[in-house]
């Protein structure tokens, strides 16, 4: 605007601070500040995520460097010194690896698989849901029937099946490196249907609205209409399912790894650690199992609580 009396920079800065202020006054910030459970959950989730992301720099030991491992450190109980004289706050496992460090590195794998699989499921589900909802007819019928069939099985079984088939197709010498990607693909494919269903419903509502008709009258390309008009208006519920889906994906990864079909033992996730730990539960070395399990529960629970809060905060009917 050329006729404004301000210098060109001023309005931009003003707009930014006022937007920040509007955000601070918004309903969502208000509902966050008035929900103690959500505040605690977000702090727990943040601490766990930071621990995982920063593991290579802040972990007391590198549990996967054989040069630093000492079998004499094995089975050290929490908060004590080992035979070799090193101190371990959460104890060590059978190979003398520091439990705290394995948890930090394990959360890294769990979170990476969880995030990637959810993102993959979200992109696939949102894309197919948009197509089904907008085009309707035979597209809708085929996509949604496939989703229905898939939703009638537990997601973990689907993931197990996809994982098994994909492993079979990969040459044995590459299996080790590809395992984590196959796992992401399997969990992602097992979870896309939830997203597709929600997005399809929301799309069917939005496509009836007049702003979409206005764009169609102009002859705007359907792909552009979906991307620029419909997608931004159906993303609200997607973010909610995405958050809850993240918690589910982390648990599914842990389940697969616990069953021994997930990530390779050289790159253990929380599920792998729990599997290792349960071998020693009844011989008195409880800490090897307990601490990874508690971490998994805290991680899944806090993310789930955040998802629940987000769903309620974005749903005006529940206010």
């Amino acid at each position: 605007m050329t006729d404004l009396p301000h210098s060109p920079e001023q309005p931009v800065v003003a707009a930014k601070t006022s937007r920040w202020r509007t955000f601070l006054k918004s309903d969502i910030v208000w509902s966050y500040r008035h929900s103690p459970v959500t505040i605690v959950a977000s702090i727990v989730a943040l601490v766990l995520i930071l621990m995982a992301v920063l593991a290579p720099w802040i972990a007391p030991y590198n549990p996967f460097n054989p040069a630093t491992l000492n079998l004499m450190d094995g089975f050290t109980p929490p908060n004590s010194n080992s035979f070799a004289g090193s101190y371990f706050i959460l104890g060590t496992d059978n190979q003398g690896r520091d439990v705290l460090s394995t948890i930090m590195y394990g959360s890294r794998v769990s979170l990476f698989v969880g995030f990637s699989a959810t993102l993959f499921a979200m992109v696939m589900g949102v894309g197919l849901g948009l197509v089904a909802g907008y085009l309707g007819g035979i597209w809708d019928a085929v996509i949604m029937r496939v989703a229905d069939v898939q939703l009638s099985f537990p997601a973990i079984l689907i993931a197990l099946l996809i994982f098994g088939v994909a492993r079979g197709l990969i040459p044995p010498n590459q299996q080790e490196g590809a395992a984590i990607w196959v796992l992401i693909l399997a969990i992602g494919l097992a979870n896309w249907a939830q997203f597709a269903r929600t997005v399809r419903g929301a799309t069917m509502v939005e496509r009836q609205k007049d702003y979409v008709s206005a764009a169609r009258i102009l002859g705007v390309n359907p792909f552009i209409i979906l991307l620029r008009h419909v997608l931004p208006n159906v993303m609200g519920p997607v973010l909610v399912i995405g958050t809850i889906g993240l918690a589910l994906a982390i648990i599914e990864e842990a389940t697969l790894s616990y069953l021994g079909v997930g990530v390779p033992p050289t790159q253990p996730s929380l599920g792998t650690l729990i599997r290792i730990g349960q071998q020693f539960l009844f011989s008195g070395e409880w800490w090897i199992l307990l601490f990874p399990a508690v971490t998994l529960v805290l991680l899944a629970l806090s993310v789930n609580l955040l998802g629940d809060w987000l769903r309620d905060a974005l749903n005006p009917k529940l206010r």
Binding site: K209, D210, Y211, S213, A214, P232, N233
Partner: peptide, 11 residues
């Protein structure tokens, strides 16, 4: 075209 519902006709 001009539509009936001004709440639904603007994105």
């Amino acid at each position: 075209m001009i539509f009936q519902d001004p709440y639904a006709s603007l994105n």
